Simulated scan of single mutants.
Amino acid sequence: MSNEPLMGNSTLYSTYKENQRFRETSSQNITAILPAYNEEVSIGSIVLLTKLYADNVIVVDDGSTDLTADIARKAGAEVVSHGANRGKAEAIKTGFTAAADLGADIIVTMDSDGQHNPADIPNLVAPIIKGNAEMVNGSRYLNYPGKNSPVYCRAGQTMQDTTVKMNFNLKITDMQSGFRAFAASTKGIFRFSGKKTAIENEMLADAGRSGIRITEIEIGAHTIPEAHSRNPAKYIMGALRAITEDVDANKPLYFYSVPGFALATCGFYMGFKFLEAFFLGSASLNFEHTFLMVFLALAGAYMTLRGIIAHSMAGALRQTETV
């Protein structure tokens, strides 16, 4: 990339020179992964800017029907294409494999729509280079918790943060962040399935279970214009759905067994009190009452058993994947 456009802006030129010094003093191979689906408008500039801060830039073209792959390739990225759209989880999995083939020491994941600033990469990878972490989460809310964001956005973010703390025992302030850095040695701990929950959440769950060191750094993020027009009700419902999926996938005992045990207890208690009253002659057989207590007992027992089985199967699956 020519220095000429940078020379016209002292701030950009200063940033460029600082990055050059960073790259000269770091011997780590930094490879950035950009999953992309129909991002022809932004992908070229993102690749060019990212190349200033990374040794390699890999664009995983996830079945795009536009010129995303061609533009990324012309901008200097290594392009890996999926024949059809497989989803973000598969795109990141492909990117991690390609990064390992290129000898990456540190892998950075970024969104390709322009909301992440590649100039944050040096700060993002610094804890890994210094040996203080194996995973770094870029947070938009670490020191600036979105005070100017709409109330419904702050409410949704707070709910999801609470879920992360409960599910993974992690103090993460931006669980949906796609801007992260990983030591290449962590590749084997991630499932990259994205089946029951968003890939960002799944990777946090895998990282939390593995016991690797995780830290956060503050990042800047450009707000995509479409985000301002989203429906508050749909946003809250989406946040609740994400929370439900996370708890279902990662804490089935909480999701099924706890409420199930409560329902079963109510059902059995109602049955006990009814039988007590019936034999004492102070109560007669009532269909609605009988149906309710039987329903509560059976539903509660089913949910309790399902939670125990799901918890056991998840533990066995994790042990199998580790082996």
Rank of each mutant, 00 (worst) to 15 (best):
5 P>L: 08
7 M>G: 00
8 G>F: 04
12 L>S: 04
15 T>Y: 01
21 R>L: 14
22 F>Q: 11
22 F>W: 15
24 E>L: 14
32 A>P: 12
35 P>V: 01
40 E>N: 04
43 I>S: 02
45 S>E: 11
53 Y>M: 06
53 Y>R: 01
59 V>S: 07
72 A>E: 07
83 G>I: 08
84 A>D: 03
85 N>W: 04
88 K>T: 13
88 K>N: 10
90 E>L: 05
97 T>C: 13
98 A>T: 11
103 G>A: 13
107 I>G: 01
108 V>G: 10
110 M>K: 00
112 S>L: 06
115 Q>D: 06
117 N>W: 06
118 P>N: 08
122 P>F: 00
130 K>W: 02
132 N>E: 15
133 A>K: 03
146 G>C: 13
148 N>E: 09
153 C>Q: 11
157 Q>R: 09
157 Q>I: 00
158 T>H: 05
159 M>K: 10
162 T>C: 09
163 T>S: 08
165 K>Q: 11
170 L>Y: 04
173 T>P: 03
187 K>E: 00
189 I>K: 07
191 R>W: 12
193 S>Q: 13
201 N>C: 14
213 R>C: 03
213 R>P: 04
215 T>A: 09
218 E>Y: 02
222 H>G: 00
224 I>E: 10
225 P>C: 10
228 H>G: 03
233 A>N: 07
235 Y>F: 14
240 L>Q: 13
240 L>P: 12
244 T>A: 15
245 E>V: 04
245 E>G: 02
246 D>R: 06
251 K>S: 07
253 L>Y: 15
258 V>K: 15
259 P>Q: 10
263 L>T: 00
264 A>K: 14
269 Y>S: 15
277 A>H: 05
278 F>W: 15
282 S>K: 11
291 F>E: 01
293 M>I: 11
305 L>P: 02
307 G>Q: 08
311 H>S: 14
314 A>K: 15
319 Q>P: 01
322 T>Y: 11
322 T>R: 06
323 V>F: 12
